[in-house]
Simulated assay, not measured.
Amino acid sequence: MLLAGLAAAVALAGCGGSGSDENPSGGKSSPTARKTGGPATAPGILKAEGYVLVPRTNVALRPPDGFVVAASLPGLARKGTRSTFLVSQAATPYDDPEEVVDEVETGFNDEAATAQKGLELSSVKRLSIDGRPAVGATGTQTAGGLAFNKAIVTFPSEGFLVTVSATLAPDDPVSAADALAILRGARWSTRGAAGNPGFVVRPAAGYVKQAASGGLSYTLGGRLGPGVPAFLVNRSLGGTPTPRHERRDVARARFGAFPGNPRADSEEPVTISGLAGWEFTGTGKEGGRERRYYAAVLFTDEGYLALVGTFDPASYSDQTDAFRSMARSLELTDR
């Protein structure tokens, strides 16, 4: 269930993992998406109704008291805490919106898979988000010895798979049920809101930029589908630095947690754009097919950046050098 894997990778990352569209090549191989019915509202009207536009997405939310727009997520955050509302909007090919929701629902009900992320969902149900079919869930997610309250909705819209997830510190006054009510009230804007993820890379020859709210996404030839070479850059959530003596283990764990659960066959220290970290190559399996991976995990004062590339070696030539060149071209724009 590749679409479910994509949604889970996004939705389960809210306790310090990568808030990313980590697998844009997942999903069905259809080259075009059928437009999903549902209203779209002009940004000015949404703002007049008390909504805020989430940067780099078409999603508008009514923020609860104390939450402000956080462009780096993108989403909402309560300052000084690890409580966030994260929006992921990734271009994803699909034919039938209802089938997308079926697959996501199956993924959310996979207790073994969700448990690997420390997530325990107490409720999974079908919903409608601004006239679009959706699936929602509430529960808790354990990370760093703390149980965070969690609410998630996922829905297809206009050729995108959208996941909005709330991750709430144990002492946050907003409950999981409160958060789900906020997510159910999400609206779709006629125009995507502008925003800068805080970093850029130089794409390798043949790679085309894709729409990705959480960071940067490039695919070979601009194609989408299982196994298509894809390269992504995303920032971790949580806002806390990793102690130096823990960084190697954190980087290894992050690499192994990418969709397909790759095993490293090479591991080297690396410094890119002044950020020190670790560089990996390895092999995993997704959808029954082998996948090759490249990744660099670079540590910052607020967590880390994850730069990851993946491709199907049975269908494409080795893309490791292309991925490495893109990673090493990283420039930070928010310093």
Rank of each mutant, 00 (worst) to 15 (best):
L2E: 10
A8N: 07
V10I: 13
A11N: 05
L12F: 15
C15Y: 07
P24W: 04
S29Y: 02
T36W: 06
T36N: 12
A42N: 11
P43Y: 05
P43Q: 06
G44P: 04
K47A: 15
A48C: 02
G50V: 03
V54Y: 11
P55E: 07
R56M: 02
R56F: 04
V59H: 08
V59M: 15
L61I: 07
D65R: 15
G66H: 06
F67A: 05
V68Q: 09
A70L: 01
A77M: 10
A77E: 07
R78A: 15
K79W: 12
G80W: 03
T81C: 14
V87K: 10
V87G: 01
P93A: 14
D95G: 11
P97Q: 12
V101G: 11
D102P: 00
E105H: 06
F108G: 00
N109A: 11
K117W: 13
K117F: 10
G118E: 05
E120C: 08
S123E: 14
S128C: 03
G131C: 05
P133A: 12
G136T: 07
T138L: 10
Q141F: 13
F148S: 10
N149H: 15
V153Q: 12
T154L: 11
F155R: 01
F160W: 01
V162E: 07
T163C: 06
V174E: 12
V174K: 13
L183G: 01
G185S: 09
A186W: 11
R187D: 03
T190E: 13
R191D: 14
A204W: 01
A211V: 07
A212D: 12
S213M: 08
G215V: 03
S217C: 15
T219M: 09
G222M: 09
R223M: 08
G227C: 00
G227S: 03
P229A: 08
V233R: 07
S236E: 08
P241D: 10
P241M: 08
T242Q: 14
T242W: 11
P243V: 01
H245N: 13
R247D: 03
D249E: 15
V250I: 14
F255Y: 07
F255N: 00
A264D: 09
T271R: 15
L275D: 05
E279L: 07
K285D: 01
G287A: 05
G287I: 00
G288L: 00
G288T: 00
R289S: 04
E290G: 02
E290D: 11
E290M: 13
R291W: 04
R292C: 03
Y294D: 01
A295G: 06
V297D: 13
L298R: 02
D301C: 04
Y304V: 03
Y304L: 12
L305K: 09
A306P: 00
S315F: 01
Y316I: 03
R324F: 00
S325R: 13
A327C: 04
S329R: 14
E331K: 15
D334V: 04
R335W: 00
